[in-house]
Structure formats: structure tokens, C-alpha cells
Design a protein around this nucleic acid. Structure first.
Lengths: 256, 256
DNA sequence: TTTCTTAGTGTATAAATGACACTAAGTTTA
DNA sequence: TAAACTTAGTGTCATTTATACACTAAGAAA
């Protein structure tokens, strides 16, 4: 990938991009093809990721790679962990693929992983310039991925479950304007449990991160719901701080 | 450093080790000497860190490097971020030092940072096999450090402030048995604000992570305090989960 | 025996939590 | 055009948790 730029053969970035569509939390993956790929069995899925350039910061690299492989731009990526097991690039299938695309396919590669939440519906995925093709996969149907990408994904999902209770980041997955029911469904999809409607609304509204819009839903076969949007000022004021959004049900410790 | 093992010239680990002694939160640093060091001005302080070995996992590397440079063993290190700005190893003073110890001093190095809390009083620091010498420095007196180590340290301190409110990790900094007043002073030192004694005790005791011992202080010129120890079972059951230890005063968002 | 120092305790008010069930507003359908 | 259907939206009560606040207890030192 990345043509013939000056790559650092030892360090890569990988992006775990979560999206939400059709009531499901999804993961963005790319299809990699083995050298002489002729059928689907010769293709496999991986997180969007690649080596960093010699003169590039890690965050830049993550943005660039994501753009190159999926067409996505202007995504806020947050670093969450580095993965560096020496054997992480040593599975036979991965080595085969590496030999076809890397100048130094035997090199040990440490990867720095980023994650992000985006509105899956709003983004048009552009297949990368090469054979890479980006697809959304429901998180419950994520197959075996390249390298240690399953581990990276699981790690990111844990992180998401935690963070969503400490920072009002859920909005990022929804369109600019959304209803509280949509937001609640999203939280339920992420946390994997149901939440009480009234308590959820009370908590989220009291947090002050939501602004009611004038507008309501139209053309739905039931009482139209109020639209809300993120209160950007308040959100930005939070910076990287945490807020207690702890939702019911985390009886003792949360997550786990 | 590390003799002539098979080093990966592109990836290093750095350890941010916090300790507590004399009522102060301290940072463990090592003194590096420039090639022809003759006076103190030729020495400078850095986080304990070094390149990883080719066949070594990142966590292993952090443990090994910490041991080699400070003599510390059996320390639980937690990865918290990777730092990879291309210019992070390009300051003149750092380059001078790199030329004296590295085979490939011009290489760009990405570092994975770990942090840990230890009982500073209980550990005897052994100077590393080379000229490295480990010292505790109060966090309010940390000078300009090598590379981007000031940034790494600040980042770790933020992380500590957050984590201490989400996980009962403060104990790690104290001797096996400690009094609640000692624990409270420690929390105050970390958070940089005072806490209400009665509320603090109530909160910590109710969390269930503390066990009262029979034993009391002896020979103090006042009412002897009860000793407590960590409830290891409960602590281990928590795993990597979070618990709401949020202490008073984080009025709206915590940290910042 | 008085003084000094830190340990240790309780309460009252205010706020947040969590469990719980009905009405409101539209569209569709018979 | 009325009835049926679907999802939106709301309030209360009992319990728990948060916070602010001041005195007594135990031992050592003077």
C-alpha cells in the first residue's frame, strides 16, 4: 500500500472504526486479497491499517491510512493501545499477504491502534486505490481477521463500553440530529443491555450535552419524536475530561 | 545499554514510575551521562526506558528495562500511550547521548509508555549496570527531561489522576499495611486538593477494598491509628474494570 | 496532670438513583 | 371516519448517596 513512500517497516497504525446503522453497531473492515486471489476464500478481512511513514506522526499516519483505505476523511481518531507481540505478524496467511505487499515482509511490526465512532449512514465509503474494499460488519458477526486484529477489536470494544459511560461520545455515531430513542437504542447496542427509557432520558438531558431542536420527525406512523443535537460548546469544554454518565445496571463495577 | 543484544532500533519503552515518600508524590528518573561527562551539567534526567529486543513483547521489554536501569522487579506496569512524533529524538542534547550509546542513533524511535505505582519506601534502588543512576524526584520538581519525557510524564500524571478515581490503585503506593490517614494524604497529593476526612473514610471503607487489621500504630505521640490492608480478593476480582470511587470536589467533570 | 497531636465518629439536608404505567400524537386500516 | 396500532413522552415515590460540618478519644510529651 501507499505506493513507494518512505515507510518505516517496524511501526504501523490500525483503525477500529465503529459505526451504527440498521440498529446495529458495526465495525469497518477492509478486504485484503492474497496475491493470486481468485475466489472469496482467498480474501480476508482486516482493520484498516498500514505502516507509518518515516516523517509522519502517529496520528497523522492513522488519518492518512484510513483515508487511503476507505476514503474517510475528517475522522477524530483516538489512540488507545499499542500491540507488539513479536509473533503478531507471523501467521502463515498473514505472511503470504505481507510478502505480496511489503518490501520487508519478515520485519516485526508494532502497531499503534486508534479508535473512532462515526455516523455510518452519512459516510460514503470509497474503495481504496488498490484492491482494498471497505465494508461494515455487525460486531456480532466479525469473522477471523488478519494478524491480531480480533484482539485489537475486542480491546477497542471494551474501551468503547467504558468510555461511553465516562464521556458523551455516543452522539458521534448518529446523524447530526437524532431522537432520544435513537440515542438510547445506540447505547443499548453498545452496552448490550436494555436501559429504562425515563431514567435514560433524565440522565442524558440533565447532563447538558443535548439541545432540543424545534424540529420533529415527519411521516412516521406514530407520534413524531423531537430531534436533538449535541451541545458542541459543552462537549468541547469537556475536552478529554470525564463525566459521570454511569448508566443503571453497572451494579457494582462497570464493564466486565 | 543492554549489552549487544538484538535490539529493534525503532521501538522503545519508557516507564513512568510513581512513588510516595515523605508525604510527596515522586517520580522515578535515571541520570544519563553525556559521553565525556565531567560535571553535573553534563548529566540529565530521563525516564527509565530503552529499545525493545527483537523477540520481546512490549510488556516484557518494559519490565526488563526497568529492572536493568533501576533494579526494580515485580512491578506491575500498565501501558498507557505510544509517542511517535518524528522529531521526538532530534534535540541536540539527546542526539549527542544517542550517538554515544546507540548503533543507529539517527533512527526515528517510537516509544510505548507504561506507568506504575510502587511503594517508594520499600524498594531499594540499585543503580543500573552502567552509569545510570536512579533517583526519586518530587513531581513538583521534575526538571527538563530527555526527549519528550516531560510530555510523557504529564500524560501519565493525568492518567493517574483519572484512574485513581476509577480504580482503587492508590494502595500500591503505600506499604502493605497503612492507615487511612496515610491513604488520604496520598490521594490528596495525587489529586492536588484536600478531601474531607469523614467522607473519604466512608467512601473507601464502603468500597470494600480495605480490610482492617488487628494491629495499630505504636509509639506515635497521639492516638494510634488502625492499620488496614488491601482486600486482594476483591481487588483481583475487579480485574481491569472500573468502580465509581469518584471523590468529592470533581464538581462537574473530573480532572482538568 | 496538663498539653498536644492525630484518630475516629454521626447527622441532617439535598440530590441522585431506580423501579414502575399511563397518556399523546400521529399513521394505517377496516 | 372511527378504531387500531405504534412509538413518544411524562411523574412519583422509596431508597441510596453526597456533602458539609465539630467534637471526643487515645496516647506521648512536657
Amino acid at each position: 500500500m501507499s505506493g513507494n513512500k518512505n515507510l518505516n517497516p517496524h511501526v504501523s497504525v490500525d483503525c477500529v472504526i465503529f459505526g451504527y446503522a440498521e440498529q446495529q453497531l458495526k465495525l469497518l473492515l477492509i478486504r485484503r486479497s492474497l496475491p493470486a486471489a481468485q475466489q472469496d476464500a482467498d480474501r480476508f478481512l482486516a482493520l484498516p491499517g498500514d505502516l507509518v511513514l518515516e516523517d509522519e506522526d502517529l496520528d497523522q499516519a492513522a488519518k492518512r491510512v484510513l483515508k487511503e483505505l476507505t476514503g474517510l476523511d475528517n475522522v477524530f481518531l483516538e489512540q488507545f493501545a499499542a500491540f507488539g507481540a513479536p509473533e503478531r505478524v507471523k501467521k502463515e496467511k498473514d505472511k503470504q499477504w505481507l510478502r505480496s505487499v511489503r518490501e520487508n515482509p519478515e520485519a516485526r511490526v508494532i502497531t499503534v491502534a486508534f479508535f473512532s465512532l462515526i455516523d455510518a449512514a452519512a459516510c460514503r465509503l470509497q474503495p481504496g486505490s488498490f484492491s482494498a474494499q471497505a465494508v461494515w460488519v455487525p460486531i456480532s458477526e466479525v469473522p477471523e481477521l488478519a494478524f491480531d486484529h480480533n484482539e485489537i477489536f475486542e480491546h477497542a470494544l471494551d474501551e468503547l463500553k467504558r468510555k461511553i459511560q465516562l464521556r458523551p461520545i455516543g452522539f458521534e455515531l448518529l446523524p447530526e440530529k437524532f431522537t432520544l430513542s435513537e440515542l438510547q437504542s445506540l447505547y443499548e447496542a453498545i452496552l448490550g443491555r436494555e436501559l429504562d427509557k425515563r431514567n435514560f432520558r433524565r440522565k442524558l438531558l440533565r447532563s447538558g450535552f443535548l439541545e432540543a431542536l424545534e424540529e420533529k420527525q415527519q411521516g412516521v406512523a406514530n407520534k413524531p419524536a423531537q430531534f436533538y443535537q449535541l451541545n458542541r460548546k459543552k462537549y468541547e469544554a469537556l475536552g478529554t475530561g470525564y463525566v459521570n454518565l454511569r448508566l443503571e445496571g453497572d451494579d457494582d463495577y462497570f464493564l466486565n
